[in-house]
Simulated assay, not measured.
Amino acid sequence: MLQRLIDDVKQSTGSALRLTSLAAAAAIALFITIAFLCAAAFVYVLQHYGPVEACLSGAAVFLVVTLIAIAVYMARKREMRLRAEKAAKAAKSAAATMLADPALIATGLQIVRAIGVKRLIPILAVGGLALGLMASRSAAGSSEPDEEE
C-alpha cells in the first residue's frame, strides 16, 4: 500500500511537471506574440496619429488588460475563500457526527485498552500523517478541474 502511494505521488509529480513545462512554453510563445502585435499597433498609430497618441493608446490597452486581470484575481480569490469555508464546515460536521456515535467511541476505547496507550501514540502519529497526506491529495485532486475552466 505504501509503495502504491509512493508510485501515485511520483506519477502525479511527473505529470504536473510536464504540464507546467508545457504551460510555460505556451506562455512564452503567447508573450512573444503579444509583444509583436503591440509593436505593430504602436507603429501603425505612430505613423497615422503621432508619438503621443501612440503612447497613450498603448497605455490605455494595457490599463484595460490590467483591470481585467485584477477583476479575475479578486473573483477567484473570493471563490477560493468560499470553497475553503464550505470545506471547513463539512469537515467539522463530519467530525461531530463521528464523535457523536456511541458505537465508534466504544470501539475506540476497546482498541486503546487492547493495545495500550504507550504503543498507541506512535501508531496515531503515523495514522495522522497518512490522513493528512490523503486529505491534501484529495483536495489537490478536486481543485485541478476547476483550474482548467
Rank of each mutant, 00 (worst) to 15 (best):
Q3D: 12
Q3I: 08
D7E: 11
T13S: 06
T13H: 01
S15D: 12
A16S: 12
T20W: 05
A24G: 10
A26F: 00
A27R: 03
L30A: 15
I34A: 13
I34C: 02
Y44F: 15
V45T: 15
G50F: 09
P51T: 11
P51R: 06
C55F: 15
S57C: 04
V61N: 05
L63Y: 02
V65K: 02
V65A: 09
A71T: 14
Y73E: 14
M74W: 13
R81C: 03
K86G: 01
A88H: 10
A90E: 15
A90Y: 05
S93T: 15
A95L: 14
M98Q: 13
A100L: 10
D101R: 01
P102H: 02
T107E: 15
T107R: 12
Q110C: 09
Q110R: 14
I111R: 03
I115S: 04
G116R: 06
V117H: 09
V117I: 14
K118I: 13
P122Q: 05
A125H: 02
V126D: 06
L131I: 08
G132Y: 01
L133E: 08
L133D: 04
A135L: 07
A135V: 04
A135W: 02
S138F: 10
A139G: 03
A140D: 04
E144K: 14
P145N: 05
E149T: 13
